[in-house]
Computed example of a mutant assay.
Amino acid sequence: MLLLQAAMQAVSPAVPTDWSVLAPMPYVSPPQIPPTLSSFVAGEIAAGRCAVARPANGRYIVKVDVATLVGADGIVRRTVPRAIDCPTVEQYSAGLVLSFARANLPRGTTEQWYRATIVYEWLG
């Protein structure tokens, strides 16, 4: 099984270095991100596990980009969160993108990298 996974990763395109050129995730139905998803991120920051300064107005806004490799069949092959100095929030965001994409992406003609951005907002 590990040999098969290694072979599959070897043929996948590398993560692009310039994420600004990535097209946005082509969701069939754009995901609705309820405010409750921000509570995990708020907890990580409150616990000191993330280096996010308290904003002067008390309103936190944390953005996480996730490069996402989508196969021609519309299935996510790989997610790579951009580092924001908070590994738990990075992985949480990658998991959310995977969840939002499940049965919510069109079929394409080739495997392609996209960028998903998740924005967490709350008053702290």
Rank of each mutant, 00 (worst) to 15 (best):
C86H: 04
Y92G: 02
A47D: 12
T36A: 15
P106A: 02
C50I: 03
T79Q: 10
A46N: 00
A101F: 06
F40E: 00
R59D: 09
V28C: 05
V89I: 14
A42K: 04
T88Y: 08
R102Y: 09
V21Y: 03
S20L: 08
T17W: 06
V76F: 07
P55Y: 11
F40S: 06
R77M: 10
S38R: 04
I75V: 14
P81K: 04
S29R: 13
V28K: 13
V76C: 04
T17H: 13
L105F: 09
T17V: 13
K63W: 02
P55N: 13
T36Q: 10
S39P: 06
T79K: 04
I45W: 07
F100D: 12
D65I: 04
V64K: 01
A67I: 01
N104H: 06
V28N: 08
S99E: 11
G108L: 03
P81S: 10
V76Y: 11
A83T: 00
R82H: 10
A42L: 04
P30G: 04
V21Q: 14
W113D: 01
V11H: 12
P35R: 05
R59K: 15
W19R: 11
T79G: 02
R78T: 10
W19Y: 13
A14L: 09
P24Y: 05
T79N: 06
T17Q: 15
P87H: 09
A14C: 03
A72Y: 11
Q9A: 13
V11Q: 14
I61S: 15
T109K: 08
E111M: 07
C50E: 02
P24M: 03
Y92P: 00
A42M: 03
R82Y: 01
V76G: 08
Q32A: 11
G108F: 06
Q32T: 12
D65V: 11
T109E: 07
Q32R: 13
R82T: 09
G43L: 14
R102Q: 07
T68F: 08
A14V: 03
R107W: 03
R78G: 00
T36R: 07
G48L: 06
R77P: 00
F100Y: 13
P31N: 03
S99I: 01
V52E: 05
V15A: 12
I75D: 05
V70T: 06
I61K: 15
L96R: 13
Q112D: 05
G95M: 12
D65H: 05
A23D: 15
I45A: 05
P16L: 03
F100A: 08
M8L: 13
L69N: 11
Y60R: 03
A46F: 03
A67R: 12
G71H: 14
A46Q: 06
G48I: 08
S93I: 10
L37T: 12
A10Q: 15
A53S: 12
P26H: 07
G108A: 02
D85F: 14
N57S: 14
A101I: 03
R78E: 13
Y92N: 02
I75H: 10
A10N: 05
A10Y: 13
P35W: 10
E90V: 06
A101E: 04
G95K: 10
E90R: 01
N57K: 12
Y114S: 05
